[in-house]
Write a protein that binds this DNA or RNA. Structure first.
Lengths: 338, 338
DNA sequence: CTGAAAGCGCTTACAG
DNA sequence: CTGAAAGCGCTTACAG
């Protein structure tokens, strides 16, 4: 019951290895009758060619590598589902590696994937990634690379992202429409483009409606954790009682904020409204349920895989990389916290 | 900047491919001087042997496959971290596949991994898996297979699990110690061993203390979702007002229960205590925070990988599989809901 | 101590 | 239309 080889089939059917191989790949110079016989037999014995041997000739591994900043992360898990689903449909295997938000580890993981001869790399970069040499090296090797969600403007690779600035702008406008005037922002770390963009969207909405913009109402969540949200909300309650709404860079800090407000028995959303970002599974389960921005994770994953395939095809034909940047739509999910 | 081969190194150093290969693998019949020279050069040019070519000779792919029931799942994500960490340390790559709790998909994923020539398979079986032919086939092929968390008593493979019965017993005893007398159980589906065991632990604690055991207080969460928990809790409030505590098979249903109790303004834990199972990240963030059983995910993953290595070594030596079953310790995490 | 040669399982240019 | 042969990059039994 070992895995069969072309040789086994050739022997069984009294053909040469060459003919069997060609028949299976529908070469035009094999007779229809032979093809049929070979295919029927291969089907019967459940033959699939040895991927390793095939690689040695074709240099195609039919594997892609995915690097995400965190393994245990609702949004990235959803992206992964989208990638895997699409990979499956196209007969690719996927190797997942986590950078744990570390630039150094990210470099290592990318190098490992290159050594593994993956056909392409899908990556969402770490919050601490400030240098794109490792990405550029992949490009030089002509290995297709696609960014998703967290990308860098410094590398001209295809990407699939959301419009973070516009999404944040919509979210804050919703708070304003609810009558909120003093809106604090729990922002993400300084480096990643998406935390910059969410901040910019926040500021744009504030300034456009001529509401108060204060630096003291901006807090940086280094770990984008619920703990960050809890701590800063406590600080806001103690030092900025005029604040009447909080817009968080992500759901986890927003949930930390709700936890804190509940403990202080602050009425949500009457005294303080809370808006998250990402629509994690938990956000529907807090009391009160969290209003947030829905980010289409699975769709993002599927699109990233499709971009990889397109890029690979382009490289194969020797065309120059025609950088595609896909922007997926987001929408507000209004629950009880606003 | 392409990946180098043994041939390149041999050419550069004026040695044969054979000698370079042996030097890198520390064969005893290569001079110390040559080894040093080769290793230094390989280091300098960052050489690693082509995994595909090596496979063709050694039949070792240095890849393992992992099959989990769900991708987007806090506990399994933690297990995955443990597996990957250990795999990394041992120079293995890991391919992750999800069965989506489907027996049919699980069979396909396992077959795919076998075709991919993985060196071993780590699997947590789906709730709907009722037949172990696919697992037995892997055993027949002499591919090491290790169960983690959700295993089956029908297959004699190594496993790393927790003692679900005892953990549930401890959890329910804690509720009893808090003065609760009418304890309902939101159990898992009928098939998986761990939901059976958690139910048995519940019943044992109830019967031992001679509390009331009623079939009407047992509810089956088919999807182990928060929605299951919400729905059954509502039913309990409406039809079984005497119930004063709920023990859920997992955190998600427990959180659904809390959500429902909050809406009905039932005091937790005074009027109704809630106990979860698994210690998901969210369980600390609900209001009130959920008491639960801590399941050591990363440790489980690391142990599963170690068992795989041991099993592989055994098969290599032709020893018969000396089935190891590791049971990891759990502990109660008491928060505000009990 | 070093190296020529065979072979893992494929694919494909080439010959017949 | 069919098949013999080379070669992908390794590892290892064997010869010297």
């Amino acid at each position: 019951m070992k895995n069969l080889t072309l040789k086994d089939i050739a022997l069984a059917l009294g053909l040469s290895i060459t003919t069997v191989s060609k028949a299976l790949k529908d070469y035009p110079d094999v007779s229809a009758k032979t093809k049929e016989k070979v295919k029927a037999y291969a089907e019967k014995v459940n033959f699939t060619p040895n991927a390793y041997a095939a690689f040695l000739r074709t240099q195609e591994s039919k594997m892609i590598g995915v690097v995400i900043p965190r393994l245990n992360h609702y949004f990235f898990s959803n992206v992964l589902r989208g990638i895997m689903h699409q990979a499956e449909a196209n007969n690719y295997m996927v190797i997942v590696l986590s950078s744990e938000e570390s630039y150094e580890l990210e470099k290592k993981q990318v190098a490992k994937l290159v050594k593994q001869n993956v056909d392409g790399i899908l990556i969402s970069i770490a919050d601490t990634t400030h240098n794109l040499e490792h990405i550029n090296r992949v490009n030089e090797l002509n290995i297709p690379l696609v960014f998703f969600d967290k990308y860098s403007k410094l590398s001209p690779s295809p990407s699939v992202i959301i419009n973070d600035q516009q999404a944040a702008y919509m979210a804050v406008n919703h708070l304003i429409a609810r009558g909120k005037k003093n809106i604090a922002h729990l922002r993400g770390p300084l480096l990643p483009q998406n935390s910059i963009d969410r901040f910019l969207g926040y500021r744009k909405a504030i300034e456009e409606k001529q509401l108060t913009y204060k630096k003291e109402w901006i807090f940086t969540c280094e770990n984008i954790s619920s703990d960050d949200g809890y701590r800063y909300t406590k600080h806001i309650l103690e030092h900025h009682p005029e604040v009447d709404a909080i817009f968080a860079v992500a759901d986890l800090p927003a949930i930390g904020a709700i936890k804190c407000l509940n403990e202080y028995e602050i009425a949500i959303p009457e005294q303080m409204a809370v808006m998250g970002f990402s629509n994690w599974g938990i956000s529907a389960l807090t009391t009160p349920a969290l209003s947030t921005v829905n980010q289409p994770g699975e769709e993002m994953g599927a699109s990233a895989f499709d971009l990889f395939l397109a890029e690979k095809e382009r490289l194969r034909k020797g065309e120059n990389s025609n950088v595609e940047n896909i922007e997926l739509a987001t929408d507000l999910v209004i629950r009880e916290s606003t």
